[in-house]
Structure formats: structure tokens, C-alpha cells
Computed example of a mutant assay.
Amino acid sequence: MRIIETRVKSIYTKSRIPSVDYVINQYVGCQFACKYCYAKFICKWKPYGEWGTWVEVKVNAPELSRKYVEGEVVMSSISDSYQPIEAKMKLTRKILQNMSKRINLSILTKSPLVTRDIDIFRQFKNIKVGLTVNSFEGKEKKLFEPLAPIQRARINALKVLHEEGIKTYAFISPIIPEVTDVEAIVRETKSFADYFFFEVLNLRASGKEFQRILRDNYPESYEIMVNDEKFWRFVKRLKGEIKRLNVKTEGIEVHKRGWEFLKI
């Protein structure tokens, strides 16, 4: 794993994500290297090699995080703040220690390492912490996200956060037809997830390699994703399923022709 240390002028970046004002990416690149990751596009501007083989580290991020910003702040959008390198560098922890505790902060990760920082989370007035869960186990995990923490570890972390009084959410993503068991995830986590976010796979953004993996191993899923009629029929069915589950949601974010946000 190649580590590139850099220094930046600001750690808060204006966001184009709906309802998010700023994002923080103290790391660029991710050791989890999920095959479907949309952040792979950053390799166009970061000529360090294949996605998942390098991580850029913004070493002066902790001092820059002292700045107070208004609005919703998300950590992170093109990395995972608790990827393996964080256990040693503690860059995320240092940022959290330095940040104004009045900032509205949302953290999303796939790593149970996030529970390490519960002591700091308690100091924030408005913070929520989410774990990405998607029911990928066995063959799916090996094909789609072989280096990411297992589902059980993520679910357990979500439960620990909730039990420690931290507002939590389950980010069910990517939802892939015939693969992601949304109902099973919700039923297992609804007692300790304060709300849910549902994101359908953006096949185009997932890249050609993942498209090939999906087509070769799950042809029925691939056909639904590339056929407009079948895709929107799937979305309609999914929305109905989520309504029947009766949970607090943020909506379904459907990536088909750019950013489109469908409220439930």
C-alpha cells in the first residue's frame, strides 16, 4: 500500500451532494477497494496507480478542522475515515478532537473501528454515525468488496453506537436487484438504527470492471439495471417494500440518469 503525505489549504470542501453543505476527506483513496466504489473516478486526477493500492493522507487536516462552518458536514465522500490506516495514524480522531462540537456532523463508514471514538462523539451537539450494510456475504462479498469488514462486524458496531447513546443510521448500499436483501437488513437493524438511507446501485458510476463482474455472475440483476422498464419496476417494488417495513427513512437515492432523489 502506497502512502502519499500531502498538505492542503482547507479540509472543508463545498459539496454537490443533496442536503450536504461540506464534505471532509482527510484521506483520499481507500484500502477497502470495493469493486463498485464510485470514488474510483478520482484516479483521473491522482496518478498513483490502481484504486485500492494507494492512500493520500492530508497530514495537516487536524489543524485545519478547527474552522467552524455552517450547515451539514459529511465525513467522507471519496474515502473511508476508518479504513485500516486510521488505526495507526489516528488522523480522523485528531480531527474530531479539534473540530467545533457545534458542527452538524455525519460520519459514514464500513469499519467497526468507528466505535473507538465514541468518547469524542458524545461531545458533539449534533452528530450521527452510519454504517454501510448491504447483505453481501460469501460469493457476493468476495466478488464485490473482498477487503471490507464483514457484515456482522458492521452491524455489531451500529448496535454498540446506539447503545452508547449515539444517533445512528444504516446506509443500505448499493442495493442490487436480486442480490441485496433489504428486508432482512432492516429487520435485523431497526431496533438500533434511528433511521435508514437507501441507495440503489449507480451502474454507470460503478465502472466497467464492476459492470462485467455483475453481468458475468448475476445476469438477471444486470438485465434489470440496464433495462429502463425493468429498472423502474424494481424501484417501485422496492419503495413499496420499504413502506411496509415502517421505518424512518431519508428516501431512496436512485442513480440512473445523474442524481435523482426519490422521496418515499
Results as ranks from 00 to 15, higher is better:
222 Y>I: 01
221 S>A: 13
230 K>Q: 09
235 V>R: 06
234 F>L: 07
223 E>G: 06
213 I>M: 10
211 Q>T: 05
217 N>T: 04
232 W>C: 05
219 P>C: 08
209 E>W: 04
225 M>A: 06
218 Y>D: 04
207 G>R: 03
234 F>G: 01
220 E>G: 11
236 K>N: 13
229 E>H: 11
216 D>E: 15
218 Y>C: 06
216 D>F: 03
215 R>F: 14
219 P>N: 12
236 K>W: 11
232 W>F: 15
217 N>P: 09
226 V>T: 14
210 F>H: 00
221 S>G: 05
210 F>A: 00
223 E>C: 05
234 F>Y: 15
230 K>T: 00
219 P>M: 08
212 R>I: 10
212 R>Y: 11
222 Y>W: 13
216 D>V: 02
225 M>W: 03
230 K>P: 02
228 D>R: 12
211 Q>H: 09
222 Y>F: 15
230 K>G: 01
208 K>I: 08
207 G>W: 05
223 E>D: 15
217 N>M: 06
229 E>F: 12
233 R>F: 06
219 P>K: 09
212 R>E: 14
219 P>Y: 12
210 F>T: 00
216 D>R: 10
219 P>V: 01
226 V>N: 13
236 K>D: 14
234 F>V: 01
229 E>A: 12
234 F>N: 07
232 W>V: 02
236 K>M: 12
227 N>G: 09
225 M>R: 01
217 N>D: 11
227 N>Q: 13
221 S>I: 02
208 K>V: 08
231 F>H: 09
227 N>F: 05
235 V>T: 06
236 K>H: 11
215 R>G: 05
215 R>N: 12
220 E>R: 15
219 P>F: 07
220 E>V: 05
226 V>H: 13
207 G>C: 07
226 V>E: 12
214 L>C: 08
219 P>E: 12
223 E>Q: 14
207 G>H: 04
231 F>K: 04
236 K>F: 12
229 E>V: 11
214 L>E: 01
211 Q>V: 01
214 L>G: 02
222 Y>Q: 02
210 F>P: 00
209 E>C: 00
222 Y>H: 07
210 F>K: 00
217 N>K: 03
236 K>L: 11
210 F>Y: 03
208 K>P: 01
231 F>D: 07
210 F>D: 00
216 D>I: 02
219 P>S: 14
222 Y>V: 01
209 E>H: 05
230 K>N: 07
210 F>V: 00
229 E>I: 09
224 I>M: 13
217 N>Q: 07
232 W>R: 09
225 M>F: 06
221 S>N: 07
234 F>R: 10
214 L>I: 08
215 R>T: 06
212 R>P: 00
232 W>M: 09
225 M>L: 14
214 L>H: 03
233 R>K: 11
207 G>P: 09
220 E>T: 12
225 M>G: 05
228 D>C: 02
225 M>E: 10
211 Q>F: 08
227 N>L: 02
230 K>D: 08
228 D>A: 06
231 F>W: 08
227 N>K: 14
214 L>K: 00
222 Y>N: 02
221 S>H: 06
222 Y>P: 00
229 E>G: 15
207 G>Q: 06
219 P>R: 09
224 I>W: 11
227 N>S: 15
221 S>R: 02
214 L>F: 08
